[in-house]
Nucleic acid binder design. Structure first.
Lengths: 207, 207
DNA sequence: GGCTATAGGTTGACATCGTCTGCCAAGTCG
DNA sequence: CGACTTGGCAGACGATGTCAACCTATAGCC
């Protein structure tokens, strides 16, 4: 009786859930469509009734993850505090997201999608760029939205944030110093760089 | 007469050259062993007389690339100038290397090697870590080699450098600001962060 | 010279991958 | 009732990485 409900979108969600789990367990490139289908309990070609191809599954997972990231970043920025405090929170959430959603972050930034120009890659691009938009907005809020300086600083800051996530994901076995210290220091220096006058030891800005 | 020489190691080099070219052209995951073999002019299973498997080819290419990176970084650090100037040069070389050796950089930092613990992945880890060692040495030279602070700053700096390369490679279509400005600013702020007192060096280079 | 070991090559096959085609069952609606 | 749609299935396809068996010519020894 209650069985009937799932015929529409429920299967899609089941597939996405199974894929997310498998990706997290075995890594992106080592999950096959047959494994996903088996985890759901359907035959493998049936996947193609819900998704046009394998990449679509990863892309949809990725886009969803980045939507939640964007929401988290927006919440971090919207809170009270000095710009430095808000940027610090944003950075902490960004790095935390990357470390906790390794599969999604890898899909978005560390996979070479074949057809970046064709539709699928664009969805990922768009989703990740929207998340960057939150950072961009905060920097613009401080430096003035039109200023070219604002764009440069926002992109440079993004690079530093991304670098920490990407490096920690790519080199888990590296003898890192205490993670909390590393991330806190990184964010402190980021804030000092990105904001003009902040209380922390700030760099000189060229006249 | 001179034909005879190639029977030993020449074929390995031919294979590596062909693979490097194909990787650069088509992207890592879209090159097959059959394509490599065809480019060399031998049958595909013959590759396995020179390499135990496909990954070995990519790993060897990658290790070699990072050996040259390490040499470049060492040359940059060894030159004259203030620590800030030497760090700036190192950063410029690091980013330049990443952008010019996209395939190798992707293999090293943006691919999820299956068996990171088993031998092959370790070679890549080792090679990339040795390159980091040059940066680590320069930072230690300024902050004191034993100091835990030195390690934190070196790793944070590495993350920022890596982030710029990785992001530019991953998002070539993003509306970046002028690349020279972006990189120069990024490096300036990096130097200001990583070095204790240093007035900003800001040597603009215009290739 | 003749014999043999061996490095480097080939052909052919294998399992597995993503994907496509064709067919079937059941629900929906005229 | 009958037609259409939806979701499922089995089977097959080409391409991929890899392996096994066999050939061939050179090098080194007797």
């Amino acid at each position: 009786m209650a069985f009937q409900i799932d015929t529409t979108q429920h299967r899609r969600e089941q597939i996405l859930d199974a894929a997310r789990q498998l990706f997290a367990d075995k890594g992106l490139h080592h999950v096959t469509t047959r494994q996903i289908a088996a985890a759901v309990g359907i035959s493998q070609p049936s996947l193609y009734a819900h998704f046009p191809n394998r990449d679509s599954i990863t892309v949809e997972l990725c886009v969803r993850a980045f939507d939640t990231l964007q929401a988290r970043l927006q919440a971090a920025v919207a809170g009270t505090g000095t710009p430095a405090q808000r940027l610090f929170r944003l950075g902490l959430d960004y790095i935390g997201f990357g470390l906790q959603n390794e599969a999604a972050y890898r899909i978005a930034f560390m996979a070479d999608l074949p057809n970046d120009a064709s539709g699928q890659g664009n969805l990922v691009l768009q989703a990740s760029v929207q998340a960057f938009g939150v950072l961009h907005g905060l920097i613009g809020e401080v430096h003035g939205h039109g200023q070219p300086e604002s764009d440069v600083i926002a992109q440079s800051t993004w690079a530093s944030l991304h670098g920490m996530v990407a490096l920690l994901l790519a080199r888990p076995q590296f003898p890192w110093v205490d993670l909390e210290t590393l991330i806190a220091t990184h964010l402190d220096q980021l804030c000092a760089m990105a904001l003009p006058d902040a209380a922390a030891p700030a760099p000189q800005s060229a006249p």
